[in-house]
Design a binder for these strands. Structure first.
Length: 176
DNA sequence: GAATTGTCACCAG
DNA sequence: CTGGTGACAATTC
Protein backbone atom coordinates (compact mmCIF):
# COMPACT_ATOMS: atom_id res chain seq x y z
CA UNK A 1 0.00 0.00 0.00
CA UNK A 2 1.47 3.24 -1.07
CA UNK A 3 1.47 6.19 1.17
CA UNK A 4 -0.94 8.91 0.28
CA UNK A 5 0.05 12.55 0.21
CA UNK A 6 -2.77 15.03 -0.06
CA UNK A 7 -2.30 18.59 -1.17
CA UNK A 8 -4.49 21.63 -1.47
CA UNK A 9 -4.24 25.30 -2.32
CA UNK A 10 -5.16 28.29 -0.29
CA UNK A 11 -4.90 32.01 -0.59
CA UNK A 12 -3.48 34.64 1.71
CA UNK A 13 -2.23 38.18 1.65
CA UNK A 14 1.18 36.78 0.80
CA UNK A 15 -0.17 34.99 -2.22
CA UNK A 16 -1.21 31.47 -2.89
CA UNK A 17 0.18 28.64 -0.85
CA UNK A 18 0.12 24.89 -1.05
CA UNK A 19 -0.22 22.51 1.84
CA UNK A 20 0.57 18.85 1.74
CA UNK A 21 -0.07 16.26 4.39
CA UNK A 22 0.63 12.63 5.02
CA UNK A 23 -1.29 10.44 7.44
CA UNK A 24 0.89 11.74 10.22
CA UNK A 25 0.73 15.45 9.58
CA UNK A 26 1.93 18.26 7.41
CA UNK A 27 4.83 17.47 5.17
CA UNK A 28 5.00 20.66 3.16
CA UNK A 29 3.84 24.23 3.05
CA UNK A 30 4.89 26.08 -0.05
CA UNK A 31 4.44 29.77 -0.60
CA UNK A 32 3.70 31.24 -3.96
CA UNK A 33 5.12 28.55 -6.16
CA UNK A 34 3.37 27.81 -9.38
CA UNK A 35 0.88 25.02 -9.05
CA UNK A 36 2.59 22.80 -11.52
CA UNK A 37 6.05 22.96 -10.04
CA UNK A 38 4.85 22.68 -6.45
CA UNK A 39 2.96 19.54 -7.24
CA UNK A 40 5.86 18.14 -9.11
CA UNK A 41 8.15 18.91 -6.21
CA UNK A 42 5.90 16.80 -4.04
CA UNK A 43 6.14 13.85 -6.35
CA UNK A 44 9.87 14.15 -6.41
CA UNK A 45 10.04 14.39 -2.66
CA UNK A 46 7.76 11.41 -2.23
CA UNK A 47 8.47 9.23 -5.24
CA UNK A 48 6.84 6.18 -3.67
CA UNK A 49 3.76 7.97 -2.49
CA UNK A 50 0.51 8.63 -4.16
CA UNK A 51 0.14 12.37 -4.50
CA UNK A 52 -3.49 13.35 -4.74
CA UNK A 53 -5.48 16.51 -4.50
CA UNK A 54 -7.31 16.82 -1.22
CA UNK A 55 -8.86 20.20 -1.47
CA UNK A 56 -11.98 19.18 0.42
CA UNK A 57 -10.26 17.22 3.15
CA UNK A 58 -7.82 20.00 3.88
CA UNK A 59 -10.23 22.89 4.18
CA UNK A 60 -9.72 23.00 7.91
CA UNK A 61 -5.98 23.10 7.62
CA UNK A 62 -6.07 25.69 4.91
CA UNK A 63 -8.12 27.85 7.19
CA UNK A 64 -5.61 27.59 9.99
CA UNK A 65 -2.64 28.23 7.77
CA UNK A 66 -4.26 31.34 6.41
CA UNK A 67 -4.73 32.53 9.91
CA UNK A 68 -1.13 31.89 10.86
CA UNK A 69 0.00 33.99 7.96
CA UNK A 70 -2.35 36.83 8.76
CA UNK A 71 -1.86 36.67 12.52
CA UNK A 72 1.65 35.75 13.62
CA UNK A 73 0.49 35.20 17.18
CA UNK A 74 -1.96 32.54 16.22
CA UNK A 75 -0.49 29.14 16.96
CA UNK A 76 -2.21 26.33 15.13
CA UNK A 77 -2.09 22.92 16.66
CA UNK A 78 -1.26 21.13 13.53
CA UNK A 79 0.65 17.88 13.50
CA UNK A 80 3.90 18.22 11.64
CA UNK A 81 5.41 15.28 9.88
CA UNK A 82 8.96 16.49 9.62
CA UNK A 83 11.08 14.52 7.27
CA UNK A 84 14.75 15.16 7.03
CA UNK A 85 18.07 14.27 8.51
CA UNK A 86 18.42 14.25 12.25
CA UNK A 87 20.35 17.45 12.03
CA UNK A 88 17.68 19.22 10.02
CA UNK A 89 14.98 18.22 12.44
CA UNK A 90 17.08 19.54 15.26
CA UNK A 91 17.43 22.89 13.55
CA UNK A 92 13.74 23.10 12.76
CA UNK A 93 12.80 22.31 16.31
CA UNK A 94 15.15 25.00 17.48
CA UNK A 95 13.54 27.56 15.24
CA UNK A 96 10.13 26.84 16.61
CA UNK A 97 11.35 27.89 20.03
CA UNK A 98 11.99 31.40 18.80
CA UNK A 99 9.46 33.86 20.15
CA UNK A 100 7.58 36.24 17.92
CA UNK A 101 9.50 39.27 16.82
CA UNK A 102 12.77 37.67 17.82
CA UNK A 103 15.48 37.18 15.26
CA UNK A 104 18.68 35.23 15.39
CA UNK A 105 21.69 34.96 13.14
CA UNK A 106 22.73 31.80 11.42
CA UNK A 107 25.99 31.87 13.31
CA UNK A 108 24.33 32.23 16.71
CA UNK A 109 21.93 29.45 15.93
CA UNK A 110 24.82 27.28 14.88
CA UNK A 111 26.51 27.95 18.18
CA UNK A 112 23.40 26.92 20.07
CA UNK A 113 23.31 23.72 18.15
CA UNK A 114 26.90 22.99 18.96
CA UNK A 115 28.25 23.40 15.49
CA UNK A 116 30.57 26.11 14.40
CA UNK A 117 29.61 26.86 10.89
CA UNK A 118 26.67 29.01 9.96
CA UNK A 119 26.57 27.47 6.52
CA UNK A 120 25.66 24.26 8.13
CA UNK A 121 22.54 25.74 9.66
CA UNK A 122 21.82 27.45 6.43
CA UNK A 123 21.56 24.21 4.59
CA UNK A 124 19.23 22.73 7.13
CA UNK A 125 17.01 25.77 7.13
CA UNK A 126 16.99 25.95 3.38
CA UNK A 127 15.68 22.40 3.36
CA UNK A 128 12.79 23.32 5.58
CA UNK A 129 9.63 22.29 3.76
CA UNK A 130 7.25 23.98 6.17
CA UNK A 131 7.10 27.69 5.49
CA UNK A 132 5.99 29.93 8.34
CA UNK A 133 5.17 27.00 10.62
CA UNK A 134 8.87 26.63 11.09
CA UNK A 135 9.85 30.27 11.43
CA UNK A 136 12.91 30.17 9.28
CA UNK A 137 12.18 33.76 8.38
CA UNK A 138 13.36 34.78 11.84
CA UNK A 139 16.88 33.81 10.97
CA UNK A 140 18.90 36.61 9.44
CA UNK A 141 22.48 37.55 8.87
CA UNK A 142 24.74 38.65 11.62
CA UNK A 143 24.71 42.30 10.61
CA UNK A 144 20.95 42.25 10.80
CA UNK A 145 20.23 42.30 7.11
CA UNK A 146 17.90 39.92 5.35
CA UNK A 147 19.85 37.32 3.52
CA UNK A 148 17.70 34.95 1.63
CA UNK A 149 14.48 33.10 1.78
CA UNK A 150 13.37 30.04 -0.04
CA UNK A 151 10.02 31.58 -0.82
CA UNK A 152 11.29 35.04 -1.65
CA UNK A 153 13.05 37.69 0.37
CA UNK A 154 10.07 39.97 0.07
CA UNK A 155 7.89 37.50 1.92
CA UNK A 156 10.54 37.20 4.58
CA UNK A 157 10.58 40.92 5.13
CA UNK A 158 6.82 41.01 5.18
CA UNK A 159 6.59 38.24 7.74
CA UNK A 160 9.16 39.92 9.96
CA UNK A 161 7.37 43.24 9.66
CA UNK A 162 4.12 41.64 10.75
CA UNK A 163 5.71 39.97 13.70
CA UNK A 164 7.22 43.21 14.83
CA UNK A 165 3.77 44.66 14.87
CA UNK A 166 2.27 41.65 16.57
CA UNK A 167 4.95 41.64 19.20
CA UNK A 168 3.80 43.25 22.43
CA UNK A 169 5.93 46.34 22.81
CA UNK A 170 6.24 48.19 26.11
CA UNK A 171 6.75 51.43 24.23
CA UNK A 172 5.32 52.42 20.94
CA UNK A 173 7.69 52.51 18.06
CA UNK A 174 6.92 56.09 17.27
CA UNK A 175 6.97 57.54 13.83
CA UNK A 176 8.22 55.27 11.18
C1' DG B 1 24.37 46.98 -2.61
C1' DA B 2 27.50 43.88 -5.24
C1' DA B 3 31.60 41.25 -5.63
C1' DT B 4 35.29 38.53 -3.43
C1' DT B 5 37.47 35.28 -0.42
C1' DG B 6 37.82 32.12 3.65
C1' DT B 7 35.88 28.19 5.92
C1' DC B 8 34.11 23.69 7.55
C1' DA B 9 30.41 20.57 9.01
C1' DC B 10 27.10 17.88 6.74
C1' DC B 11 25.47 14.71 3.26
C1' DA B 12 25.72 11.25 -0.41
C1' DG B 13 28.41 7.71 -2.60
C1' DC C 1 37.10 8.43 3.43
C1' DT C 2 36.51 11.78 -0.69
C1' DG C 3 34.21 15.29 -2.97
C1' DG C 4 30.74 18.87 -3.54
C1' DT C 5 28.22 22.42 -1.44
C1' DG C 6 26.15 26.51 0.72
C1' DA C 7 19.34 31.42 2.79
C1' DC C 8 27.22 32.64 6.00
C1' DA C 9 30.60 36.21 7.60
C1' DA C 10 33.86 39.80 7.08
C1' DT C 11 36.02 42.97 3.99
C1' DT C 12 36.27 46.12 0.21
C1' DC C 13 34.77 49.70 -2.98
Amino acid sequence: MREVIRFAWGNSSLGEFMVATSDKGLVALELGSSRGSAEEALRIRFPDAQVVSGQLELVDILDKITRVIEEPRFVPELPLDMRGTAYEIEVWSMLRLLPIGETISYGTLAAKLGTRDARDVTKAIASNPLAVLVPCHRVIKKDGSISGYRWGVKRKRELLARERRAKPLPTSEGAG
